[in-house]
Amino acid sequence: MAVERGVGKCEQNHAGSFGYPTRPETPYDFCPQCGNPMVWSCPNCESPLPDDPGELVSARFCRNCGSSYFPQEEGETQS
């Protein structure tokens, strides 16, 4: 079964959602506010982003596998 609804964000923490009333039906690729790619699930283990709005905004790493939601950004800051 495909995921029907969910939340995501871009690396600038602009939150977004799909599948809810008045929202796009499927996940979209780019943030309409800043143009960065949107993340809808963990790039490593595919688990969804946290439901809680506070957690969604503060989370930078997957709570399931610990990998970063924005690997490129982490690479830039660490180098």
């Binding site: 939340v7 959602s17 809810y20 009333p21 008045t22 439901d51 809680d52 709005p53």
Partner: peptide, 22 residues
């Protein structure tokens, strides 16, 4: 009901929908 829920959800900022749903 479908239109009603659209009406309610239009006031919900993006990313807060799961909370509203709960």
């Amino acid at each position: 009901t479908p239109r009603l829920s659209r009406f309610v959800y239009q006031f919900v900022p993006p990313g807060r929908e799961p909370e509203m749903e709960h």
